[in-house]
Design a protein around this nucleic acid. Structure first.
Ligand SMILES: [Mn+2]
Ligand SMILES: [Mn+2]
Ligand SMILES: [Zn+2]
Ligand SMILES: [Zn+2]
Lengths: 141, 141
DNA sequence: GTGTAAATGCGAATGATTCGCATTTGAGCG
DNA sequence: CGCTCAAATGCGAATCATTCGCATTTACAC
């Protein structure tokens, strides 16, 4: 059962299993959207789970530290957003008109990073890419 | 003379030529580093130019709008940073240890963006890339 | 020079995130 | 199962970058 799996993740991370941790992980694992701390609070409230906003922040901090969640800071959004870490490297394509956020599961960078390591002397650990444009729906309108 | 050139840019942008605009543009055009609003204020102070922080923000806003400057929001920095717009497409390579920020003037993306347009239906207008790693100096230490 | 909109200074407001501290809770242990 | 203690939580206040309101000053067109 998925829930047991999440509890294992929490415990393996050395964290206590609390209802808030479990419900935030469940929420994000089921969400196709990125959610802000505030959104998370709202969504849990819909499920009759009342949680203090400070606790949301502290909880997602821990879950990001332990790589159960990812924190995403997008150029156009002032609030941090969170997603369940599905362990699949990805980037985002964002509509400048309607702010739709689409994950992209291909990555153009592999070889280039090697070149860059040679040229720069850096040992490269990661990268972040965002693409901006106008989505199909917004082009029509 | 460079200064006349900057005044032209300001006027062509439909802005009034003020000492603050000119000195911020001069400062950033001479800087190899990205500067925050606060940094800009500090640097001008060193040159005996006293400017209110609100004015720094309002000035860089206008200069970004008119594409004389670029605003850069990096993942690890909480404050926005500004650079003179040298009209050369670039990305940044950032040392996770010493926070050194190195601009990279090559771009790995051209073909990939076309593929992405076809696959996604988006009309792509731009992208943002940051690379993270450990710089040569920090690797030694 | 005059007039007027734009620019500036200053202090207050905003808003996301963090912090301090009192209280509660989870998990190991007997 | 009850006990203990660190970790988690709630709540209100603090922080800090950025923005705003408003009174005053300035640039520039006439
Ligand atoms: Mn990638
Ligand atoms: Mn590029
Ligand atoms: Zn759209
Ligand atoms: Zn370094």
């Amino acid at each position: 059962m998925q829930k047991e799996n999440f509890i294992d993740k929490i415990l393996n991370a050395g964290l206590k299993n609390t209802k808030y941790r479990l419900s935030i992980i469940e929420l994000l694992s089921e969400s196709k959207e990125l959610l802000t701390a505030y959104n998370i609070r709202e969504e849990l409230l819909k499920k009759k789970i009342k949680i203090n906003l400070s606790t949301v922040y502290r909880t997602v901090d821990k879950l990001v530290e332990t790589k159960i969640l990812n924190r995403i800071n997008l150029e156009n959004e002032k609030n941090a957003m969170y997603e369940y870490n599905r362990e699949k490297h990805h980037h985002f394509l964002i509509c400048e008109n309607c702010n739709k956020i689409v994950p992209i599961y291909s990555c153009p960078i592999d070889k280039y990073e090697l070149e860059l390591e040679e040229k720069s002397g850096f040992q490269i650990k990661g990268h972040k890419i965002e693409f901006y444009g106008i989505c199909e729906d917004c082009q029509k309108a």
